[in-house]
Amino acid sequence: MKEIRIHGRGGQGSVTAAELLAVAAFADGKFSQAFPAFGVERRGAPVQAFTRISDTPIRLRSQIYEPDYVIVQDPTLIEVVDVAGGLKEDGMILINSDFDPSKFKLDTKAKVVTVNATKVALDIIGRPIVNTVLLGAFAGATGNIRPESIKEAVKERFPGKVGDRNAEAIQQAYDMMKEANV
């Protein structure tokens, strides 16, 4: 079973990203589970969302404390939230940033990867909404999920032009990660 924790701020679509990841993983033939951190969500406040992906049905209902992967939508969170907390040593943390991974002094032995998702989102979607872009980067960086499945999940949730542009952004982020060979 792979466990993923997504950090964001209220309004950035962290919960939606966790759900879309679950939908995409299921389309890939895996079992999946997505849930928010059950907080009292407010716009701008730090939020977390979780996804589990497994080859067998998922029964576990606790929150995720030792994730295999962490996705950080907003790098300013790193100063206020222990985003790498519990992250497995052989895991990976994916941060939305144009800085080099070495710039982040995180208390983890896991691999740190950055992607400028904000730029991709602004270039293609026209708005700095990075949740779907980061899912594309996640697929590229981990190989755990097919980008087509993510694109389909996003297009189903956001039909029409919005979905199409998101799909394009997802593909670009996926390709960037593949080219960077992270």
Binding site: A22, F26, F31, S32, Q33, A34, F35, P36, F38, I58
Partner: peptide, 12 residues
């Protein structure tokens, strides 16, 4: 059904 734990979870 358990609040949030079931009501707000996505699964197949």
């Amino acid at each position: 059904m358990d609040g949030f734990i079931l009501s707000h979870v996505y699964e197949p």
